[in-house]
Design a protein around this nucleic acid. Structure first.
Lengths: 231, 231
DNA sequence: GCAATCCTTACACCGACTGTAAGTGTACAT
DNA sequence: ATGTACACTTACAGTCGGTGTAAGGATTGC
């Protein structure tokens, strides 16, 4: 499997140096085009590892790190000039996987990056929204120490809902993705499977996290009362 | 789930200090009694994290790290006085998850340890022997980029074989573990499932890794030609 | 209160998993 | 060499979970 590394660093020279460092080792390297709201761009690039600076023009690296760690399951390696213990503890607390300070020997950076890539290859690809996480491979839903394995169809359904959440997912889109073509597919089969999915999620305490939007489709939304904000 | 931290450090004063540091945070802390062949003791203690020194009376930390990483799936944090880049690269290359140098601020150590514990909670418990790894929860067998999900019974069978490997596992023991009682269980059912398991492992290229020991039981052994020694 | 939309339940089909049975193959001892 | 104990393989049937169909009930919004 190809390993994709995403560099988030505003200093052009350092960025080029980092890109070169990783490319020399055969990695596919990317960087982002805008620092204003890079979140979507980062997610869409599906990186295997993110190398993140702290002092950025737009959102700080801390904010980005926290936001990403709440949603994605790739490792984040922070590389920054901030060399205080306080910053390091802060970053690690927000979920950063490693914290290196500039200037950093390329070999150390590489070794740390390789380590994270190795470790995370064993981590299943998890979709997560708040406390809810879902392993799309095994169809395992986890929620507050409870877990449950869904059948294939319901798993694909949940996957679609979580990927787009909290946006509304249209019935046509779902039918297209799961049964391939909205043409001759009975619309009822979606409803049946939705009922089954809801019933299964109920079992582990996830009551009514799937809302119906009449005439449009479905949304997944976890109410605040179901969140365990550790903040 | 309780988090168990194992300290492997021969200096008594530092060891006590480390134990205290982690205990203050509510972790269950252990250390080992002998440094001559601590491998079995380490494995039996089922740690969630190992804090490992490099300069030890018996085997070096490097050796231990490599040995453990080939067999277990808990994180290893190296804490040592060796502060050369070379040592760090060596350790990371052997699979160490983090590398800190003494003296180390307790808060940094704690933050790094917490980070590893958090990450590894998402890593499935893998049984592994050489290149072969097996997720006992999902019954997923992985071997050299190929993978396959086994049915329940065959998974339990493989689990028993891998746990004891390369020792011989008796038929009675297997019957006991899987069907609960060797009394009225047809011995044939074991053979049938063994055939099925072998056939399934064949599919991903694992030919004849299960040997029959006439009159005694079965062994799992991966021949050298099947190993991809990265050394 | 009516029509469109959505939900639920029951049922039947299919395939995967499992154990039974019977026959075939193999190794060891005499 | 030959027979016996042991091991292997294949075929078969029961069971169960997952899936889609069908039909009827409930809800929403005008």
């Amino acid at each position: 499997m190809e390993q994709r590394i995403l560099i988030i660093e505003d200093d052009i020279f350092l960025r080029e140096e980092l890109i070169h460092t990783f490319q020399k080792e055969g990695y596919s390297v990317m960087s982002i085009s805008s620092f204003q709201s890079p979140e979507q761009e980062i997610i869409n690039s599906h990186p295997s590892l993110v190398v993140l600076d702290i002092n950025l023009p737009g959102k700080s690296g801390f904010e980005l790190c926290k936001w990403l760690k709440g949603r994605c399951s790739f490792p984040i390696l922070i590389l920054t000039a901030c060399d205080t213990l306080e910053d390091e503890l802060n970053a690690l607390g927000l979920g950063a996987d490693d914290y290196l300070t500039k200037p950093c020997h390329p070999e150390r950076l590489l070794a740390r990056a390789v380590r994270l890539l190795d470790t995370y290859r064993k981590v299943p690809d998890l979709l997560q929204i708040g406390d809810l996480s879902f392993d799309t491979e095994t169809c395992k839903v986890m929620w507050k120490n409870d877990s449950l394995t869904l059948p294939e169809t319901e798993g694909r359904l949940l996957k679609l809902l979580m990927e787009q959440a909290p946006a509304i997912v249209s019935k046509d889109y779902i039918a297209m993705e799961i049964w391939g073509g909205t043409e001759y597919v009975d619309e009822n089969i979606l409803q049946v499977n939705m009922t089954r999915l809801r019933k299964n999620l109920d079992k582990i305490g996830l009551k009514s996290i799937i809302q119906t939007v009449r005439g449009q489709g479905y949304t997944l939304h976890i109410s605040d009362s179901q969140q365990s904000d550790i903040e």
